[in-house]
Structure formats: structure tokens, C-alpha cells
Design a protein around this nucleic acid. Structure first.
Lengths: 149, 149
DNA sequence: ATTAATGCAAACGGTTTGCACTACT
DNA sequence: AGTAGTGCAAACCGTTTGCATTAAT
């Protein structure tokens, strides 16, 4: 098994090159930021982090590079909370999300819960669940306890 | 049982009055649009529909009235697809959503699926699911068949 | 040398705000 | 009369676009 089912950030340069695209300092910086991140980030967060490293990077460059990386399958964007573009890193790792609306904790939906949900909906309506597009909001145990008082 | 557990649009005027708020033509128009809608709508859709009825209504009025109605518990806003404010009507009916990403169909998550999910997460991490904040993306039976065929 | 990628600045779309005016109560 | 609500216009924020310039190949 020499081929990775899931691309890694290290492969980004290669992927770009394969398509005749270029490896620029700005792209290097963004990839650096991405590889230091995990899970989900908004475009704005990425922009801020990139500019922390290289303050001269223009917003448009970051947005355009994110588009490119999405074409390469390295990120995937959705529209998250607060109306901001939310990037989902390395979409190869398919999983749903459980988000605490009080503390913001964002954890992976358990395989058990996801499996049940998928099975139930398939059985019911024949709906095919896309794991990475499952979002469950609510309160985590800690916050629920706090809220209860 | 003379009191409705879930307020209706008819009650809006009364609810406003109870708080010393006013019943204006613009609010009447928005309530009219809301009562003719169901499920979920974006603020922009509501704005368009209100302006179809009364073209002089200002965007700010609609946004401000939606805020007011949210305080009264008549709508609840989340941030939906395309980064737009999405309004969830009459939040008294707690339910999750299943959205087909191909045809856009948006149906209610079955009580069975929701119940299972809630139970599993509570058992697992003690996470308390908020029913109306559950979103499941994927493909409906028809679209899945089309995509496969 | 070619042409992909960048920075800049302006445009965009949806939402929010300040303020003087209007009109419910 | 009093004050909640309105329209208008400008501001706002994140994102997108056009264009002349730069730089990776």
C-alpha cells in the first residue's frame, strides 16, 4: 500500500505540481497553518493565522488558495455558525459533529450514534446519510450540569 | 386546556401588546408572510416576500421585527446554508432536519431517529441533544437512485 | 518566456446602525 | 403626548472580483 487513501498536507505541493499549479510562499504559509490546525476552522481564522505568519498576505490570496485546495480535495467548505465559511480539513476523515452550544466544544459524533442514525434513516425513507454533514447541537455534560445549576 | 403550549401567529398581536409593543402594518405584513410559510426560511426570503406585499418596507424593519419575534419565541434563528440567517418558524415544534443535498428537500427528522440519537449521546457522553439543532445531510432515496443509476 | 499567482482596491451581498420622522397607543 | 417603530442612508463584515504586477516554472 503505497497510495494514501487520505492525502496529507505533505502531499499538497505534489498535488499542486501535478496540475501545473505553483508552490508559492503564500501557499506554503497557508498549508503550514492548515497542518497546524485540525477539525474545523473558518476562513477568517485561517486568514488571521496566515497573516500572523506573513502579514503581507492578501485576503484574496487566501480565499483563492482555499478554493484551489478544495479542488484538490484537501479541504471542504460548508457554511457554519455565524454565517462564516467554515473549512473542514482533510475531508477524507468522514465523521459527524457534536457541538456544545454553550462552551463551543466540538467533538466527533460517535461511530455508534452515526451508525444508528444512518441505519434508521436508510430503513425509514431510504435516505443516504453523508457522515460529514451531520451536525448535532446541544449541551455537553458539563454545561448541562452547569445550566441545571 | 385553554392555553396553547405552542403560540400561533394569531397570538402574535396579543403577545406584542402584552409587552407594550405595537401592531403596525409592517408587522402585520411580516406575520402574514410568516403564517403563509413553514419550516425554514432565510431572512432574505422573508424580506423579499414582505416587499412583494408592501414594497416600501425597509430591510431594517424586517430584521428588527424578526429580532422582536424571536424575543417573543415565535421564531428562532440559526445560521443556515449559504451563510444566510435562517429562520425556523414556531420553535415550539422541536424537530431535527434531514436535507437532501441534491434536490434540496428538507424533511423532519423522524422521532425514531431523533430518539435514538438523543439516547445514544446521552448514554455515551452525557450530551444533551437539542432537537431543533440536529441537521443531517445526504441524499434522499430518489436522488440516491438517480446518482447511482 | 510563459502564464499562474499575487496585492491592491473597489465591489458585492446580507445585515446592522444612527438618526430624524411617523404613527400607534 | 409620549414613545415604539419606521425609512433612509451610511456603515459594517466577510467574501469576491478586475486588473496591473510579480514571480514560479
Amino acid at each position: 500500500m503505497t497510495t494514501a487513501a487520505r492525502p496529507t498536507w505533505d502531499a499538497a505541493r505534489e498535488l499542486l505540481r501535478q496540475r501545473g499549479l505553483r508552490w508559492t510562499p503564500q501557499r506554503r504559509a497557508l498549508i503550514g497553518v492548515l497542518s497546524a490546525s485540525s477539525g474545523h476552522v473558518t476562513a477568517t481564522q485561517l486568514l488571521d493565522r496566515v497573516r500572523a505568519v506573513d502579514p503581507t498576505t492578501a485576503p484574496s490570496t487566501v480565499y483563492r488558495t482555499l478554493d484551489t485546495l478544495e479542488e484538490l480535495g484537501l479541504v471542504q467548505h460548508t457554511h457554519g455558525a455565524a454565517g462564516r465559511e467554515e473549512y473542514h480539513l482533510l475531508p477524507g476523515s468522514e465523521h459527524g459533529h457534536v457541538i456544545c452550544e454553550r462552551c463551543g466544544a466540538n467533538v466527533e459524533l460517535s461511530a455508534e450514534a452515526l451508525g444508528q442514525l444512518t441505519a434508521t434513516l436508510l430503513r425509514g425513507d431510504g435516505f443516504r446519510v453523508e457522515a460529514s454533514h451531520v451536525t448535532v447541537g446541544g449541551l455537553c455534560a458539563t454545561c448541562a450540569a452547569d445550566a441545571a445549576g
